[in-house]
Design a protein around this nucleic acid. Sequence first.
DNA 1: CATATATAGGACTATTATTATCCTATATGA
DNA 2: TCATATAGGATAATAATAGTCCTATATATG
Lengths: 135, 135
Amino acid sequence: MNILRKNTDYALRMMCNLAGNYRQRAVSVRMLARQEDVSYQFACKILQKLQVADLVESVMGPAGGYRLCREPEKITMLDVIQAMQGNITVNRCTDKYDNCPRQPNCPVSIVLRRLQRNVDEFFVKVTLKDLLNNK
Amino acid sequence: MNILRKNTDYALRMMCNLAGNYRQRAVSVRMLARQEDVSYQFACKILQKLQVADLVESVMGPAGGYRLCREPEKITMLDVIQAMQGNITVNRCTDKYDNCPRQPNCPVSIVLRRLQRNVDEFFVKVTLKDLLNNK
DNA sequence: CATATATAGGACTATTATTATCCTATATGA
DNA sequence: TCATATAGGATAATAATAGTCCTATATATG
């Protein structure tokens, strides 16, 4: 299966779209939905989640829509992912708050914690600006 | 959510157990289940899957059980993961056979394919022997 | 050769997560 | 005041995951 949910996939694409329009205008959900191939209703839900997470802000009324809350270089993939699907953990035992009795000497957990660090680092290092620049 | 399913987590632990007993004896499912905290019935299912994937072989009858098909250094985490939950893909678009029309220039996909390579490489490099040695 | 101890594996249930839609309320610019 | 937007609760539909039940089959050993 996929590590990223469809939700998150849609959200990342819509956030890229908003990043491309940053400081120009609010983009309506209808427009975002059409351009990024997401159903209108579902796009509404996703944007509401992104708003709760303080990544986008809404403009109501005609000519309304959504825009980023801050500069594209200050929003990371991790921000978007966490807003949509929470923390990504490699395994139960790589979650900070796990209390598996085999810790901390379980061989499986020792190795997986290493991958966990790689993944965390990856997502926190990539910003929306990087995405736009194909970095 | 977790990248590795509970199934896979159980499987990895049981495989470590079998690796520790390699060339000594077949370990019964009852024993594996008790030592690794998995229900007996569920452990049976998991081992059957591992057998279909040619990672373990069964010995029927009294004093029977399971043993690894080959040396612990010749079985990777990827082998176990694929047997239990198939390929792990970062996103739809990092799957080899994906045909998303945005390919190959989608900014999201370009970045995620990089992570995909990291993850693949990680799992293929760690063997059961490494796990036992806490490498 | 009977029996106790194992695995084999199909069928099924339960639970949870994901994806999505429907509907009504509210805000606001022209 | 009306057309064009978002807000958000409720709920449906689907799919994945986790786990159990039951009966069949293999085999070492007394």
